[in-house]
Design a protein around this nucleic acid. Structure first.
Lengths: 207, 207
DNA sequence: GCCGATACTGAGCGAGCGCTTAGCGGGACG
DNA sequence: CGTCCCGCTAAGCGCTCGCTCAGTATCGGC
């Protein structure tokens, strides 16, 4: 098992860059609420309540409810991209790099399911500008994975009919983990990561 | 290309069982609105407006907004289950049956993306009872696919490490098509169905 | 001890929500 | 022609939403 992402010490890690403390607590509260109920079904009163503050306190640190979602989405996507870049740029053959990328990416979606859910499924609730910014990050994620697969095909290590379609399917498979993964279920994030790395190597016809 | 589901003549087909006409128009309007904006962001005024009626008309045919989602969800899941059952029970070896199941299922998710989106992603907006009913249908879908994979393993046609996990991954891959598929994109539903059937046969190590 | 800045609260505004109700209009039947 | 029924509308009720703002407690600097 590799370490393309630091093993999270809990769902609330990785928000260290958010200051001051009250702003971070509000952001974490928003992630939990959005993941549980969805963006539109979450009230600003609920977010503030989870952070132990009055409804009005939210507006000292964030201009609107949507700004919270935007910040969460950007930080989350940057993290996802970083995970894929680290795996794509490590030493080793295409098969090792792809397996590392998939298992790391899946581990992040499973272990940080709360965050990943918001990041991957609440995109449509953003306004056009914020949405466009996030979509650019997604295209970069796509490019990282496609790069590994193209390397594998060029090296003769992979046997792929449709590189673009297979890339999309691989990412889709990983992302959907955030929808179904259950912490109380039969698998650990590591186990799903290993299983998925194996499945993806089969999908690309790795030798 | 097989015909495990009838080729849809448009997104609004398959609602023929809903009567009277006004109730069906409201249901179709609700599917479109829920798919575009999500359940919680859709207003009853919007649904009624799309159906060309006043807000109050909705409540003659449906008790609540949630009943609309429940009806859509049940009809959609029954359709999905029927598609998988038809493929699972046709003649042919496990590989053919699995390929048929995946391509039909994917075609339905891509071609009827509007409906599939609501069916697959708005489940959490249902109340506990309706939710439980729908989850039972989902378990039946899972069982159909797992059955084919188990047949393939028993016959020595497939090479699978973790049948349960692989089943989940296959279904997850198909379902996520509803999230990313775009009618204006580079693929037709048929093309995605074929690509995915190939990918899934690789995942199960079909000979 | 006083001042201003900072972080927060209590109360509440205007808007829009899901849903209800009184009543209207037109077809079926005598 | 009169009567009832029924699908539908106009109006609006009670409520909660995102968000605002005047006021308060706390703290560092002097």
């Amino acid at each position: 098992m590799s370490t393309a992402e630091e093993t999270a010490g809990g769902e609330t890690s990785a928000w260290g860059e958010v200051t001051p403390d009250a702003a971070r607590r509000l952001l974490i509260a928003a992630v939990e609420a959005f993941a549980e109920r969805g963006y539109h079904a979450t009230t600003t009163r609920d977010i503030a309540g989870r952070a132990g503050m009055s409804p009005a306190a939210l507006y000292i640190h964030y201009k609107t409810k949507e700004e919270l979602l935007h910040r969460i989405s950007r930080i989350g996507h940057e993290k996802a991209l970083e995970i894929l870049q680290t795996a794509a740029r490590r030493e080793g053959g295409p098969a090792e790099r792809l397996a590392d990328a998939v298992s790391s990416f899946v581990r992040w979606h499973a272990g940080g399911r709360t965050t990943a859910r918001v990041v991957q499924y609440e995109l449509d609730s953003l306004g056009p500008d914020a949405r466009a910014e996030i979509l650019a990050l997604r295209r970069q994620c796509d490019a990282e994975v496609r790069g590994i697969i193209e390397d594998g095909v060029a090296a003769g290590d992979f046997d792929v009919l449709d590189v673009k379609g297979t890339t999309l399917a691989v990412l889709s498979l990983c992302i959907d983990v955030a929808r179904w993964f259950n912490v109380d279920g039969p698998w650990t994030p590591d186990e799903v990561g290993s299983l998925y790395a194996d499945l993806v190597l089969r999908m690309v016809g790795a030798k």
